[in-house]
């Protein structure tokens, strides 16, 4: 079995609140594993310990107790960062750098240089659909564009694990759809992803496995199917069905022993879907979303 991307064991993080003996336990006895190539969603309400856990993975914080390993390396060791990319919530990069300069800067920090870096920057700009805005300063980017450049920055050195903190916070639905597509692309490429969010729908769409964290403890963990599947129910969506046909179906159900009709009515599309349908008719605007 390959080394897991993230292996957290019995992580406890305590913050001293004041000089007197008052403490805040942000995370308590938390264990989780993100498999190699897996997309893991860590969900929970604000203040549940998501960000703390993530910062421990990134080496921005040290565990008070327990261990955290990234591809087998201690997360406190700078070596582990070779394999990690990070997109913080609402990132502000240097406003005065252009998109291309930003990616170049982060590439250099990862030890990349020369034509290889240049090529990688072009490739990334293409990937996040910002080629047209490459020479514009980040000060003039929209929130969605910033988020995308942030994602590009996170994967500049082709990390094997990408950590995303509320990647779609404050981004409009079409922007967040783009980001979702990028995450799915990463998954397809075999990159492990650790996604922290409180937007359940988003997590549901992309994650293989999900952990729910509450008050610093893991309360439920499992695959999406395990968490949400209702194995004994079946949904049928019918188009152009006449009243008579529907009545026929009802009677068929009545005839079946043990079967029960739970709901019947017009299916609702998601609001996101409606918004996207509506906005797609517009003429495509270059660069800015």
């Amino acid at each position: 079995m390959s080394t897991p991307a993230v292996k957290i064991e019995n992580l406890t993080k305590i913050f001293p609140l004041s000089l007197r003996k008052r403490y805040l336990v942000a995370v308590e006895q938390l264990s989780l594993t993100v498999g190699d190539g897996e997309v893991y969603g860590l969900i929970g309400p604000n203040g549940s310990g998501k960000s703390t856990t993530m910062k421990v993975v990134l080496g921005l914080m040290a565990p008070t107790k327990g261990t955290c390993r990234v591809f087998g390396n201690d997360s406190r060791d700078v070596v582990s960062r070779n394999q990690v990319g990070f997109l913080p919530e609402n990132p502000y990069f240097y406003k005065y750098l252009t998109g291309a300069e930003t990616l170049k800067f982060y590439g250099k920090l990862c030890g990349m240089k020369g034509p290889a870096l240049k090529e990688r920057v072009d490739e990334l700009l293409e990937m996040v659909d910002l080629t047209g805005a490459r020479d514009r300063r980040l000060g003039g980017y929209s929130k969605g564009m910033l988020q995308r450049i942030g994602l590009a920055q996170a994967v500049v050195q082709r990390p094997r694990l990408v950590v995303l903190d509320e990647p779609t916070a404050g981004v409009d639905p079409s922007g967040s759809r783009k980001i979702r597509d990028l995450v799915l692309q990463l998954k397809k490429d075999g990159t492990s992803v650790m996604l922290c969010s409180h937007l359940l729908e988003q997590v549901q769409e992309v994650c293989d496995r999900i952990g729910i964290i509450h008050q610093g403890r893991m309360v439920k963990e499992g695959s999406l199917k395990e968490l949400i599947a209702l194995e004994d129910q079946t949904e049928i969506v019918l188009k152009n069905g006449s009243e008579a046909l529907i009545e026929k179906i009802r009677s068929l159900i009545r005839e079946e022993q043990g079967a029960e009709l739970v709901t019947l009515g017009h299916p609702r599309t998601t609001l996101e879907r409606v918004f996207l349908e509506e906005t797609r008719q517009d003429a495509p605007k270059p660069a800015k979303d």
């Binding site: 990134l58 700078v78 960062r81």
Partner: peptide
């Protein structure tokens, strides 16, 4: 600006 996060989460 959280740029510190993005910098220090690189191998720096």
């Amino acid at each position: 600006d959280r740029t510190l996060y993005t910098i220090l989460s690189k191998p720096v």
